[in-house]
C-alpha cells in the first residue's frame, strides 16, 4: 500500500488536494479533499489516517505498478446506472499524479518516501486536532462521551448525497441510515433496528426520509429487466408505482420519475409512521416528527414535501395502530 498526500496549500486555488491509496493488489483509490468551507460550514473531523505496515507493503507485487489514467478510465467504462462516466477533473488529477516517479520497491528511497508521507499526514492531523482544541477544548472529549443527535436521516446510498455535508451538520449531530433508494421495509431488520435505536435509545426529535431526483435505484426498479439480487429490494418501488398508478400514468417523460421519487419518499415516511417505536414515542413524548424531503442536483437544495405528520399518523393508525 502506498500513500501520498498533496498539500492543498502548495497548489493553485481551485485545485484539489488528493490522497492516493494503494491498498493490496487492486487499483488505487483517490480521495480528493476539497476546501473545508466548500464541503460544509464545519471543518473536517479528521484527515485520512491510514498507515502502511512496511513489511506487508514491500512484498506486494502491485506496489511498483504505475498507474495510468487510461487504466482507471478503462475500468469505469461500463456503468449502466450512472448517466455519465465523464468527470474530467478526476482523470486530469490522476494523470497528473501518475506522472510522478515511484521509488523502486525495497529501496532506501522508498523507505524514506514512506516515512515522509506517513509523517506528513500525522503532522497535518495533529495540527488540525490542535486547532479544534483551541476552538473548542471539549471537542473530542465530548464526542467520546457519546452521541445525542436530534435527527435520524434515512437516505439513499448515492455518493452525491452525504447527509451531514449537504445539511451543514458536524459529527455527533445526525444518526444516519442509507440504503438503495431510501426504502423503509416492514420486514427489513436492518432499517427497523436503526429506527428502533434512534427513537427508543437516542430519542431523536426528527426523522427525515430523503430521496433525490435522478435516483438510479428508482430508475433501475422501473427497468424491465431481471436484476437478480436487486429484484426483491427494488420490488418495493414497483409497489409504490402500483399504489399511484393512475397519477403516474398521466405524467410523461422524466417528470414521471421525479414524481415517483416523491411518492416513494411519502410511502417510506408512511412506513416509518407505521412502526411501534414512532407511534409509542410520539404518544408519550410528542416526538419524533417525520419529514419527507427530496434533494435536487440542479441547485443542491432540499425540497420539503410538506407532509402533515399528525394527519399522516391519524390516517395510518386507522389500520396500523400499535399504541395501547
Amino acid at each position: 500500500m502506498r500513500l501520498s498526500v498533496r498539500d492543498p496549500h502548495a497548489r493553485s486555488a481551485g485545485s484539489r488536494a488528493a490522497v492516493r491509496l494503494f491498498i493490496g493488489r487492486g487499483t488505487p483509490v483517490t480521495l480528493r479533499a476539497s476546501q473545508p468551507s466548500f464541503l460544509s460550514p464545519h471543518p473536517p473531523t479528521a484527515l485520512l489516517h491510514i498507515v502502511p505496515r512496511t513489511s506487508t507493503l514491500l512484498s506486494l507485487p502491485a506496489f511498483s505498478a504505475t498507474l495510468t489514467s487510461r487504466r482507471l478510465a478503462a475500468q469505469s467504462q461500463h456503468r449502466p446506472f450512472s448517466s455519465s462516466t465523464h468527470r474530467p477533473w478526476i482523470w486530469e488529477n490522476i494523470a497528473e499524479m501518475a506522472a510522478e516517479p515511484t521509488p523502486e520497491p525495497n529501496s532506501q528511497a522508498l523507505r524514506k518516501y514512506l516515512q515522509q508521507s506517513h509523517d506528513k499526514i500525522f503532522e497535518s492531523n495533529k495540527k488540525w486536532a490542535e486547532e479544534q482544541k483551541v476552538k473548542n477544548p471539549e471537542f473530542f472529549e465530548k464526542l467520546s462521551k457519546g452521541q445525542e443527535p436530534d435527527y435520524l436521516w434515512i437516505g439513499c446510498s448515492d455518493s452525491r448525497i452525504p447527509a451531514e455535508a449537504i445539511t451543514g451538520l458536524g459529527p455527533g449531530e445526525m444518526f444516519i441510515h442509507r440504503n438503495i433508494a431510501n426504502l423503509v421495509c416492514n420486514t427489513d431488520l436492518n432499517v427497523m433496528s436503526v429506527v428502533n435505536y434512534a427513537v427508543r435509545h437516542l430519542h431523536v426529535k426528527h426523522i427525515v426520509v430523503c430521496g433525490h431526483y435522478g435516483c438510479g435505484g428508482v430508475k433501475a426498479a422501473m427497468t424491465p429487466q431481471d436484476l437478480g439480487l436487486l429484484n426483491p429490494w427494488l420490488r418495493n418501488i414497483r409497489d409504490v408505482y402500483r399504489l399511484h398508478e393512475q397519477e403516474l400514468d398521466a405524467i410523461e417523460g422524466d417528470k414521471k420519475y421525479d414524481r415517483l421519487v416523491e411518492l416513494n419518499v411519502l410511502e417510506q415516511c408512511r412506513n416509518v409512521v407505521k412502526t411501534a417505536a414512532v407511534q409509542g414515542s410520539y404518544k408519550k413524548n410528542g416526538f419524533p416528527i417525520v419529514h419527507g424531503w427530496v434533494f435536487g442536483f440542479q441547485d443542491g437544495r432540499l425540497k420539503d414535501l410538506e407532509i402533515n405528520f399528525e394527519k399522516m399518523l391519524e390516517d395510518v393508525q386507522k389500520i396500523y395502530n400499535l399504541t395501547e
Partner: peptide, 18 residues
C-alpha cells in the same frame, strides 16, 4: 449509523466520492 462517524467529513472527501 453513529452520528459521530460521518464518512465524507472524516475522510475529507466531497459529495460523489463515497
Amino acid at each position: 449509523a453513529d452520528s459521530r462517524v460521518p464518512e465524507t467529513t472524516i475522510c475529507h472527501c466531497k459529495p460523489g466520492d463515497i
